[in-house]
Amino acid sequence: MLVTLLDAATYATALPKKESDCAEWQAAIEALILVANSRTGPTMLAGIGVMKAINRHEERVFNPDRKGPHWGKRKLLRDR
């Protein structure tokens, strides 16, 4: 479990060369370096980059069953 940015950096540096060369990990590592150097950088951006790199093989699929029912348009006062 990655809790801090230090955990994420340690995890990223321990990756094999083949895996760390992919574009997702390069972007995540670059965001981690940016946050570490500036200390005021977008820490959320680094976290999102690491999560996208970890889950890069997961395909997001739209589930239409999760969509709520449509109950009709809202009636305006002028249309009553």
Rank of each mutant, 00 (worst) to 15 (best):
M1R: 12
M1Q: 13
M1D: 13
L2C: 07
T4Q: 07
T4E: 10
T4K: 10
L5P: 04
L5R: 13
L5K: 09
L5W: 12
L6K: 15
D7Q: 09
D7G: 03
A9P: 01
T10Q: 15
T10N: 15
T10I: 06
A12D: 08
A12R: 04
T13N: 14
A14L: 10
A14N: 14
A14I: 00
P16I: 07
P16H: 11
P16S: 12
K17G: 02
E19Q: 14
E19L: 15
E19R: 13
S20E: 12
D21N: 12
C22V: 12
C22T: 15
A23F: 12
A23I: 14
A23N: 09
E24C: 03
W25I: 00
W25N: 01
A28M: 03
A28W: 03
A28I: 01
I29L: 08
I29T: 13
I29Y: 05
E30A: 14
A31Y: 01
A31V: 00
L32C: 00
I33M: 05
L34F: 10
L34E: 13
V35I: 07
V35P: 03
V35S: 01
A36H: 12
A36C: 04
N37K: 13
N37T: 10
R39V: 06
P42A: 10
P42N: 15
P42K: 10
T43S: 09
M44H: 08
M44I: 05
G47P: 01
G47H: 03
I48P: 00
G49F: 00
G49V: 01
V50Y: 02
M51Q: 09
K52E: 09
A53R: 05
I54F: 02
N55L: 05
N55G: 04
R56N: 02
R56H: 11
R56G: 00
E58W: 08
E58Q: 08
E59A: 05
E59P: 00
E59V: 11
E59D: 06
R60H: 08
R60P: 02
R60F: 11
R60L: 14
V61M: 07
V61L: 09
F62T: 07
F62P: 00
N63V: 05
P64C: 05
D65R: 14
R66H: 13
K67G: 03
K67Y: 13
G68L: 14
G68P: 07
G68K: 13
G68S: 12
H70T: 05
H70G: 01
W71T: 04
W71N: 10
G72E: 14
G72M: 08
K73I: 03
K73N: 11
R74V: 09
K75M: 12
L76K: 14
L76H: 12
L77T: 11
L77C: 02
R78F: 07
